[in-house]
Simulated scan of single mutants.
Amino acid sequence: MKNIKFNILNLGLACCLLSACGVKNGSNVSTISGLSEAAFDTTINQKAVKLYTLNNKNGMEVCITNFGGRIVSLVVPDKNGKQTDVVLGYDNIAQYADSVNSPSDFGAAIGRYANRINKGKLQIAGKNIQLPTNNYGHCLHGGPSGWQYQVYDAKQPNDSTLELTMLSKDGDNNFPGNVTATVSYVLRSNNSLDITYTATTDKETVINMTNHSYFNLNGDPTKDIENCILYINADNYTPSDSTYMTTGEIAKVDNTPMDFRKPTAIGKDVNNFKFDQIKNANGFDHNWCLNTYKDGKGDDTKVAASLYSPLTGIMLEVYTNEPGIQVYTGNFLNGKINGKKGIAYNKRAACCLETQKYPDTPNKKGWPTANLKPGEKYYSHCIFKFSIK
């Protein structure tokens, strides 16, 4: 999900930029993907920021910064055994931290509320709450200083696990409740990245977390993802209006470009602007209602969605206990942002697969709830499993 309009820079990033720019092109390269750990070693808001590396015996590597809990690189072998980075991002902390000149959600652990809340309005425990609005009059991804622009506390107990903790105070972007949230990244021996989100609160609130990685399974961001084959295990989706807000309808995918129940090339209909939903979003930027979620429970043993590149042979399967998945096809990437290795990210350079509650769930009666009360525990699970087809 993109086209974000940030209007404040209140995270003390000036210090970050000064400390990071000196190592932006540092020679301390220690990762398979070519990242320099020194380029991520800094302090933001008096909290240490670093680059953490996970690896397994198969040559898979995942690099994550605790700034925003972002996956910076994700390396998997392609059909020829070549180690291939399949996510977009930056190769230095300065760009990640600069929400004015290089705004992005690349790889972030989003919170408190992934996706949009209509006009930023909530009613919780009988109280009306006004959240900040930062996208077409709506609150997107927790507001202009959502968790993607905050620092998680990090612990790395072993070379395949990273545990991140966010202590979000009552009133953070006007959300109620002191919230303790955790994100656990575990790299498995079967080439899956297992992500678990948990949260508790001392006051009723809403929680909806996700990972916002931009996948390019071609392994080359100069090649768009229209050739990639997408499968979504969903009979229905939630239409949205011209401001990207869900209308409240749950619509059938039958006989529409939204039907990915059979693996289909993204390019088949992503530019079919005769279909209003695609025209409104400039491509795909929609939530699908997963068939793997029934009777208030999600089955994270069944494939919710998959993405495949015929070019590299890399297959990504997504598993989740969540009711929905937002698929975004890089519609607003425009070549003005240069990512890793200085590559300009153009339109359709990536596809996002965001497991989550439906957008604006708190304001849609009957949709799976995002409310969290004291004494309850929020739990969300997502697996990105990689293989060669």
Results as ranks from 00 to 15, higher is better:
K364G: 02
G283N: 09
W367R: 00
H141L: 09
T201G: 11
C15N: 14
N287P: 07
S387W: 05
L230E: 03
N10T: 13
K357N: 13
D220E: 08
G111M: 07
I343N: 04
T196C: 05
K155W: 00
A305N: 02
Y358S: 02
N173A: 13
Q356E: 15
C382S: 09
K5W: 12
T369C: 05
N282I: 03
V62C: 12
N255T: 08
A108I: 10
T361W: 04
K373L: 14
N3K: 15
G68H: 08
I64E: 01
D259R: 04
V72G: 02
I314F: 12
E317Q: 14
K5E: 15
Y293G: 02
K47L: 11
P257M: 07
Y244H: 13
G342W: 11
I383A: 00
N227L: 06
Q356C: 07
V100T: 10
R116G: 10
G68N: 07
T200W: 06
I266Q: 02
L311N: 11
V151W: 00
C139N: 15
Y90K: 09
Y185R: 04
T31Q: 03
G89I: 05
G296S: 06
T329A: 08
C21D: 12
G330V: 03
P221S: 04
G366Q: 08
L122Q: 07
Y90N: 04
T264M: 07
S168V: 08
N3C: 11
G296C: 03
T320D: 02
I229L: 14
N92F: 05
P221F: 13
G12W: 04
L193E: 04
K47W: 02
N291E: 07
C21P: 00
T320R: 00
N80R: 08
P323D: 01
N331S: 12
L122K: 08
T361R: 00
V23G: 05
S19C: 10
Q356H: 11
G342F: 08
T246I: 14
C16M: 10
F384T: 00
A350M: 07
K47P: 05
Y358P: 09
R348G: 02
N363S: 13
T369D: 10
K297P: 00
A14Y: 13
T320A: 01
L311A: 14
M166W: 15
A114P: 06
A265Q: 13
Y378I: 06
S27K: 14
W147L: 15
N118R: 14
L51K: 01
K340F: 00
D254I: 01
T84N: 03
Y328A: 06
L372H: 10
N92R: 02
D360S: 13
N56R: 12
D276W: 06
K274Q: 13
P310Y: 10
D285M: 11
L35D: 09
R348E: 11
K279L: 11
N216R: 08
N190G: 05
N55V: 04
Y214P: 02
I229S: 06
N287S: 14
G69M: 09
L372N: 09
F40V: 01
Y379W: 04
S387F: 10
K79D: 11
M166F: 15
D235S: 14
K155I: 11
D235G: 12
F284L: 10
K24I: 04
I32C: 10
P77H: 07
P103N: 13
N118S: 15
N280I: 02
T312G: 08
T198L: 09
F175R: 03
V62L: 05
N118P: 00
